[in-house]
Computed example of a mutant assay.
Amino acid sequence: MLTLFLDAVDQITIAESLQFDFGTIRAATNNFSDANKLGRGGFGVVYRGMLFDGQEIAVKRLSRNSRQGDLEFKNEVLLVAKLQHRNLVRLLGFSIEGSERLLIYEFIPNKSLDNYIFDPTKRAHLDWEIRYKIIKGIVRGILYLHEDSRLRIIHRDLKASNILLDAEMNPKIADFGMARMVVLNETAGNTNRIVGTYGYMAPEYAMFGQFSIKSDVFSFGILILEIVSGQKNTSYHNGENVEYLLNYAWKNWHEGTISNLIDPTLSGSPITEIMRFIHIGLLCVQENVADRPNMASVVLMINSNSFALTVPRQPASFMVSNVLSPTSLQQDTGSNVTVNNVSITELSPR
């Protein structure tokens, strides 16, 4: 009983230490000025700000129509605040006033990966060394969430726009509004609230609500293919033809022409190493959940060329128009689905 009381006191102390005065944040963002906007999503708007001591921050102003109460919001903050890793964006605190709910994060100067990798000009500056570093950092961050933190977190919305890049182009995984916590001896769960982004969702999750560490692995596999190709997963441009990236990757793997997938700006890079990463990406997007590696195995695959890779089978391949539709998923009024890469983030007690 005493232990429970002390735990409760500790939680209250942590919550108080993380709470910012609303007026302080309003001043830091110049009253949430449009000039300070960094981006907008289904969750609301993110603003750049500066505290009185000169520290730069990013402020996520959640939509006012959230159904979440103050207690649940604070519980969510406490959960994310416990996640500390160099490849995760660090939560500095929160602020509540009336219907306003703010999340305060460290400011990451280079915005998100999608701003670089899908831009024809900017991605030309991302040589293989930088892309390799980004992939390895994402792997470390996911491994921490799945295996190494005190909690086991399934992110459920891993995508290029949720990978932020710091001043040295180190990746930091962001946006835990859709994350789910499972106990350490569990690796999966079920939900009737389907959240995430078309194109990155594992099929068993998108269709049946079955999420697991392997559904995050699927999303990571898509990320690898995007980083190597410089193309969005839903629209690979091959001359005048446009097709789903996963279909294109598998077709070229099967025909022995997988080098077609590599971004032309990477010419002169170590092709054998890049091909190995494509191989790893294809293993991560296997249709059978059991055929996908866990992130600990992915680390071994990346760090050791002597680690033998199995031969991938045809990956999970489905088009949104054929299997998923916004109408079918939104029949559940609790569903949060991302269409055209715009996330709908609703924080809720886990």
Rank of each mutant, 00 (worst) to 15 (best):
N75M: 08
L165G: 01
N65R: 11
R313E: 13
K122H: 12
Y116I: 00
I25S: 13
F318M: 15
A296E: 05
G137E: 08
Y144Q: 03
K122M: 04
I344C: 11
A124G: 02
E147Y: 13
S33H: 03
L102C: 11
T29A: 07
V182T: 09
L103Y: 00
T187G: 10
P270R: 06
A290H: 10
F211L: 10
L6E: 14
P203S: 10
D332G: 11
A8C: 12
L103C: 02
G239N: 11
R90Y: 04
A160H: 00
P203E: 10
Y132R: 12
L151K: 15
E240D: 15
H146A: 10
S149H: 02
A27Y: 12
E273F: 00
E168K: 08
N336D: 12
F277T: 01
M50F: 07
D10F: 13
E186M: 12
L145M: 09
P109M: 07
I271M: 05
L83D: 13
F73A: 04
E129W: 07
L78D: 05
G209P: 14
M178R: 05
P315D: 08
A58H: 00
N322Q: 12
V337F: 09
N75P: 09
I108L: 14
F118N: 01
D157C: 08
A316I: 00
R67Y: 05
L184Y: 11
V242F: 15
F277R: 00
R40S: 15
L347F: 10
R193D: 04
